[in-house]
Simulated scan of single mutants.
Amino acid sequence: MTDAAVATAAGDAAASAPTGRSVLVTGGNRGIGLAVARSLAARGDRVAVTYRTGEPPAGFLAVRCDVTDEEQVERAFKEVAAAQGPVEVLVANAGIARDGLLPALADDAVDAVLDTNLRAVMRVARHASRAMIGGRWGRMVLISSAVAFTGSPGQTAYTAAKAGLVGLARSLAWELGRRGITVNVVAPGLVETDMLREVRPARLEQYLAMTPLGRAATPEEVAAAVRFLTSEQATYITGAVLPVSGGLGMGH
């Protein structure tokens, strides 16, 4: 084979080789998750998203998956691995809220919040870690909330689950750190999503009064923090909690 042919073959191979990292964003069909998916795709990553209800977002490998169901999660990871390679970057974003004062909060509401916001995160992290350990590289970002540190009346189950993500991330940071895997938490405050529109106006005003910047974040501002923590520039950051809260919960 001539030098020119070798160069052409090498160029063809490079052109056909996968670019970026294989990413999975849970709950990636709207809000913060969709903004994260778009941001990571824009830097060249191969991005898959899970969604439970609604329409799948265009431009990504969209996998219908209820993260509270072990069989569906296992199937989703296999589907992602077959299509774009084993998951190297996990963004655990899927979450729900079931608000109510604890004395009146039914067990099924508590279970739904804990199952989705905490137990399911442990589940997807367990699946993702297996491939990351084999590759000796990985990034996990768990989406928590500023109210995990301030508390929030009427959100006991939600805040308990979101606070639990900090302990989960820090324990995983110890377990996985020597294998080149980082695990961090992003803790947004008020964010312009569907969930924010469900907050009572009086309560929203209280949150804004507690936020030094005096406004809600855009999903893209949260996505920028996730993009940094999953980048090569954040190789020495693990077990950290990065607030993207406009100062809400500052000092906690």
Results as ranks from 00 to 15, higher is better:
M1W: 08
V6G: 02
A7N: 05
A14Y: 09
A15L: 13
A17G: 06
S22V: 12
L34Y: 08
A35V: 12
A35F: 11
V36D: 01
D45M: 07
D45A: 10
R46L: 12
A48G: 11
P56Y: 07
E74G: 07
E79A: 15
V80R: 06
A82W: 02
Q84S: 09
P86M: 08
V87W: 00
A92T: 04
A92Y: 04
P103F: 08
A104V: 15
D107M: 13
D107T: 02
L114W: 10
R119L: 09
A120Q: 13
A120S: 12
V121C: 10
V121K: 03
V124K: 14
A125K: 10
A128L: 10
L142G: 09
G151F: 06
Y158R: 05
A163L: 11
L165N: 07
L172S: 02
E175V: 11
R179W: 02
L190P: 04
D194M: 08
M195R: 15
L196A: 13
E198F: 04
V199A: 06
V199I: 15
A202H: 12
A202F: 04
R203M: 08
R203T: 02
L204D: 10
Q206I: 00
Y207K: 09
L208G: 00
T211S: 10
A216Y: 00
E221Q: 13
F228V: 12
F228C: 07
T235C: 02
A240E: 15
V244A: 00
G247T: 06
M250A: 13
H252R: 13
